[in-house]
Design a protein around this nucleic acid. Structure first.
Lengths: 138, 138
DNA sequence: ATAAATGTAACAAAAATAGTAACAATAAGA
DNA sequence: TCTTATTGTTACTATTTTTGTTACATTTAT
């Protein structure tokens, strides 16, 4: 089970709650319950997508690159699931069969539209709003 | 990469094109370019979902349990991705952290809504229509 | 200087997925 | 009735993906 989206969202919510103050991968890892290196790996993806930035050296850590109210779950999805292969198409169908010859291309189109519908739904929720929902449960 | 949805769709398109005539897992496997046992495994899921039925014995095989015009890609998705864990939630976040304590529940809700948007999009396409699209490319 | 971080690479472990073989049960047809 | 073709299912192996773990050069605050 791929949980990068979930962990990435967790990271961003933490950073939002500590807005401004850098948070180390070690502290984040304790909340997520995993290892700092995994957190740093995902932070690399988030940073590449322009969602976070990091400060090197003692007292350093990660922080949001822009307000949590401007980051949606769709941004998170796009940052970590770069390939967009939620639903994969099987490789190598028989080209001598009229179905096998063209099903990949056709299915890719349908899957692409479906995943886009998922992304649009994800874009309805910001990190700030999600953080509010989460903290309201405590 | 999980390709069960893709293979299941392939199977149903084949059955639609041979409507009425049972097709053996061997013949289907040749078009998909995989092994009959995998086809039979997926056919078991499709059969449980009421989309196909099989005839035992010589000359047997699988056929659609209802017209391809009444089966949508959402039916296929629901049949094969029974767990609905397209986007998994990471296990075991720290319950002593306000975020870790409640993020799973909140994220599951968001993911569920997003996957539902994907399912609604998939429900717009029937096997019959997809078969038409595919054969139009030949 | 020292200590605390990141970023990244390398590798091990675990989990998920697909490939393969085998066989009892079933049904059609000679 | 015998033979043959086929399913449904199990067990096992191989491959791929994902996560866990360690290590270390580099950077920066104190």
């Amino acid at each position: 089970m791929n949980t990068r989206f979930s962990v990435a969202t967790h990271i961003l919510v933490i950073l939002h709650c500590q807005d401004g103050k850098p948070v180390s991968s070690d502290v984040i890892a304790q909340s997520v319950n995993t290892h700092p290196a995994l957190i740093r790996r995902i932070l690399t993806q988030l940073s590449r997508a322009g969602l976070t930035q990091s400060q090197l050296g003692a007292g350093g850590g990660a922080l949001l690159a822009r307000p949590g109210s401007t980051i949606t779950l769709r941004d998170v999805y796009d940052a970590v699931d770069e390939d967009g292969d939620l639903l994969g198409v099987h490789p190598g169908p028989n080209p001598d069969c009229p179905v096998g010859r063209n099903i990949q291309q056709t299915l890719r189109g349908e899957i692409s539209e479906a995943v886009n519908a998922l992304r649009i739904q994800l874009s309805q929720k910001t990190i700030a709003a999600l953080a509010g929902d989460i903290l309201a449960l405590s």
